[in-house]
Nucleic acid binder design. Sequence first.
DNA 1: CAATTTTATACCTTTTTGGTATATTTATAT
DNA 2: ATATAAATATACCAAAAAGGTATAAAATTG
Lengths: 143, 143
Amino acid sequence: MRFNQATDYAFRTIFYLSRQEPNEIVEAKQIAEKENIPIRFLLKTVRLLTQAGIVNSYRGLKGGYALAKDPKDITLRDIVEAVEGPVLINKCLGDPKECSKDAASWCPVRRALYRVQQAANKELGKYTFNDLIKIYETECKKQ
Amino acid sequence: MRFNQATDYAFRTIFYLSRQEPNEIVEAKQIAEKENIPIRFLLKTVRLLTQAGIVNSYRGLKGGYALAKDPKDITLRDIVEAVEGPVLINKCLGDPKECSKDAASWCPVRRALYRVQQAANKELGKYTFNDLIKIYETECKKQ
DNA sequence: CAATTTTATACCTTTTTGGTATATTTATAT
DNA sequence: ATATAAATATACCAAAAAGGTATAAAATTG
């Protein structure tokens, strides 16, 4: 049970943009170099973030990407959902018909897993990129 | 971010065994039929559960599987860890060297994700198979 | 010893993942 | 206008993981 590489890159991309001046446009190349992300893959992934309204994109010379929102209004959950879609920790939680026993409607395992999923979503929704900057300042930067 | 099919089958296998008389031996064929699980795949998966000490296996005529513990002492987390290994929601949480930026030691994204992972584990550890039987009795059976 | 059950190992096919390539569109600066 | 530089759209590809199957061996019972 793991987030995929694209999501990891997206986290770092948004964290990088969060540390720039508000509305500062940064080109993909710069993000890719600073964050050590394959540029082609980054370009593809960032498109999901623009489609989700998390970043704005600008084409042409002097183009690039900038956050579409304040970092305090972007959570880890937003990124996950933009890149991978909603967290569904078991097949049957996406589509009840996926249960090979066709028991989703009354299955207690499913009910418990649903609560685990809710807890995970809640926790993912807790952390904004503003929080991450604060964590960085207080726990990381001094080292 | 999803548990795999083997884990799902394992949840249902343990739930099935939890509803038998204590120490009752049930053969794989019966579990597979009742739970609609491909038998070969089930046999392979259950081996992980025996290796983890969650079920006992008995070979030969009248052989099969029985729980090695009381259902009140088996949690969803135990099953997940037996089948998939520990929950690691991002690569870098397993091995810090997996970070393509080699930034794991100070990365605030990683720190936040670690907390999310802890929350997920905590919640998974909350539900025992005794709880699931109770959920079944109170929320499901009457329907 | 024969029948039945799990175990061990290996294999196979399909899907997902991670990444790349090419051509196109948009915007800027000269 | 035109050359340049950026994102976009589409398609493609290889490697890994997922999901499942097959066969032979080992253990247990009657």
